[in-house]
């Protein structure tokens, strides 16, 4: 049962990653692409955090009465990654807004058409 759960964790991560990748590659709408990018990123958060979990452990805040703690290192890395992620997505959204002002559309294909004309 435990082994099954462990693999499930990785499979969910992979599904999220592939889903994000699919949204980025297949969809032309830039806002949706950015949402896909966010999903892709969060799958990586899950990928980092899952191996750090130790069964029977608690959150890495030292307190009397607990001996086993989960690995704090991935938490630190992902903590900063989340905030950086939102900052980069904000930058992407700013570019989308500028594109909308310049071309009047946020679809990939339509921008291509406008360029070709």
């Amino acid at each position: 049962m435990n082994e099954f759960l462990a693999d499930l964790n990785y499979w969910v991560t992979i599904f999220l990653l592939v889903g994000g990748l699919y949204i980025i590659t297949a969809h032309g709408n830039m806002v949706k692409k950015l949402v896909g990018l966010a999903i892709f990123q969060s799958s990586v958060y899950l990928l980092f955090i899952s191996p750090g979990k130790i069964l029977g452990g608690t959150a890495p805040i030292i307190a009397p009465g607990f001996d086993v703690y989960s690995n704090p290192l991935p938490h630190v890395l992902i903590l900063t990654a989340i905030v950086v992620g939102v900052a980069t997505i904000a930058l992407g959204l700013a570019i989308v807004v500028r594109i909308h002002e310049a071309y009047g559309t946020i679809e990939d294909d339509e921008v291509h058409d406008l360029e070709a004309d």
Binding site: A38, S42, Y45, I49, S50, G52, K53, I54, G57, T58, A59, P60, I61, Y69, S70, P74, H75, I78, L79, I82, V83, G85, V86, I89, A90
Partner: peptide
């Protein structure tokens, strides 16, 4: 559930709120 309370807090505030 995966014991990453700090990260969960950030994700709830940033992912669900800010973005």
């Amino acid at each position: 559930v995966l014991d990453a309370v700090d990260v969960a807090m950030t994700e709830a505030a940033v992912g669900a709120g800010m973005s």
